[in-house]
Design a protein around this nucleic acid. Structure first.
Lengths: 148, 148
DNA sequence: GCGCAAATGTTATGTTATATCATGGAGGAC
DNA sequence: GTCCTCCATGATATAACATAACATTTGCGC
């Protein structure tokens, strides 16, 4: 396990303790899987990895853990891929924007907050009150672009 | 049929003629459905409406027509809902941002282009080359917000 | 008419996600 | 400590979304 993964897990543990959330074994394991793989994984891929690790592997096992992680900011869903990534900036209040490489599937999480723009700004013109914004770009990551 | 719907259909027809695209009956009908309903529809809802209109209703019928419409800019997929909307600004080169009301399911399409912001700007810091950006906000539309 | 390419018809299946009810386990009230 | 409640998990089933693969038809240039 990378050291960064261990650190993130510890932070999640601490956050849960402070907020009366139960960081159960299956939730911890799913977060470890997401952080270790460091790419977008579908629920059923996660399920396979859970089985390998000795957990039960019916779909609700993965979806429940993922719901928990997403709801509490430890992971994000990538809507375009119907898959999930571990959060790179847990704990902090943030507006993520995801960059999804079409060649290598790597997903990087950037901060979308920008004083010049915001989805809210577009929205307010339309009289719309934003509660959650999804920003996902598809394209080529630096390393794949330079190979092409 | 609303007059605006007829107008959009005519524009689509013209665009297809000019670009050697076949605006076949099923493609036309799906676009009509999307424009008339003026909200996000799942492929299987569209399929039901196609059947009512006398078309075949196996899944590929809807998905193929939707692929055509999305590819050519006559419709968009709303990733968060796994559903589709007719395009409000067809023909023009555009970067849509969608506002999805969680109360009434109405989806409005705004223009996200802004020279100062852009997903590309966030991306370029990350060395990422954007080919397509998905921006979808969830929240409350003006009319639902004022009722609350 | 013939041949090609694209669209449609048709069957089957793959993939993603949730509903529902049963069971278990930790922690508080008493 | 025991009972109770709440939430998590176990387990089964099915719903919802999407595509693969191959056959058939249609429109069009020659």
């Amino acid at each position: 396990m990378g050291i960064a993964v261990g650190k993130s897990i510890k932070e999640a543990e601490k956050f849960c303790k402070e907020n009366d959330l139960k960081f159960t074994p299956v939730r911890r394991k799913v977060l470890e899987i997401l952080l270790q793989k460091n790419k977008a994984l579908g629920a059923y891929e996660i399920l396979d990895l859970l089985r390998e690790a000795g957990f039960k592997n019916q779909p609700p096992v993965a979806y429940r853990a993922l719901d928990f992680l997403v709801k509490n900011g430890f992971a994000h869903k990538i809507e375009q891929l119907n898959s999930f990534v571990g959060c790179m900036h847990p704990g902090k209040d943030h507006s993520p924007a995801f960059m999804i490489c079409r060649n290598c599937d790597f997903v990087s999480e950037e901060e979308a907050i920008n004083p010049n723009f915001s989805v809210s700004k577009i929205a307010s013109k339309a009289g719309f009150k934003v509660e959650k914004a999804v920003i996902e770009a598809r394209g080529l990551c630096h390393s794949c672009a330079s190979m092409a």
